[in-house]
Computed example of a mutant assay.
Amino acid sequence: MPFPEADSSLDLRGTPCPVNFIRARLALEGLEPGAVLELVLDRGEPEAMVLLGLEREGHAVSVQETTDDWLRLHVTCAGG
């Protein structure tokens, strides 16, 4: 269940690169522009690759929560 500020939620912990990025993109494709996707990712390579890829596609990404192992992001959909 997403946080109240999010329209949708996706937990990608344990999902390898580039599958995690592809799944995040597909989730965003199903959202309206301006909708917020709550995304949970492992730290390290997934964090770096997915954040960079989503920002390059024009989505706004903000970190909401972090631990030593994972982070929770809010991604505002830029639309198609």
Rank of each mutant, 00 (worst) to 15 (best):
M1I: 03
M1G: 14
M1H: 13
P2Q: 14
P2H: 08
P2Y: 09
F3C: 12
F3V: 05
E5R: 05
A6S: 13
A6K: 06
A6N: 11
D7F: 03
D7N: 14
S8P: 00
S8E: 14
L10F: 11
L10Y: 10
L12V: 01
L12S: 03
L12G: 00
L12T: 00
R13K: 04
R13T: 08
R13F: 01
T15H: 00
P18S: 04
V19H: 02
V19T: 04
N20A: 12
N20V: 01
F21K: 03
F21C: 12
F21I: 14
I22L: 08
I22E: 15
I22A: 04
R23D: 09
R23M: 13
A24N: 09
R25S: 13
L26P: 01
A27W: 08
L28I: 06
L28R: 00
E29A: 15
G30Q: 13
G30A: 11
G30I: 04
L31E: 12
L31K: 01
E32C: 07
E32N: 13
P33V: 10
P33F: 11
G34D: 11
V36G: 07
V36I: 15
L37E: 08
L37R: 12
L37K: 08
E38N: 10
E38I: 04
E38S: 09
L39S: 01
L39A: 01
V40R: 15
L41T: 06
L41G: 03
D42E: 11
D42H: 00
R43T: 06
R43N: 07
G44I: 01
G44V: 00
G44F: 00
G44S: 02
E45M: 09
E45D: 13
E47N: 13
A48Q: 14
M49Y: 09
M49N: 12
V50Y: 04
V50Q: 02
L51A: 12
L51G: 05
L52F: 13
L54N: 07
R56S: 11
R56Y: 05
E57L: 12
H59F: 07
H59A: 05
A60N: 11
A60S: 10
A60G: 05
V61D: 07
V63H: 05
V63D: 07
Q64R: 14
Q64N: 10
E65K: 15
E65L: 10
E65Y: 10
T67E: 01
D68A: 13
D69F: 12
D69Q: 14
D69E: 13
W70F: 12
L71S: 03
L71M: 11
L71E: 03
L71K: 02
R72W: 06
R72Y: 08
L73N: 00
V75R: 06
T76L: 05
T76W: 04
T76Y: 02
C77N: 14
A78P: 11
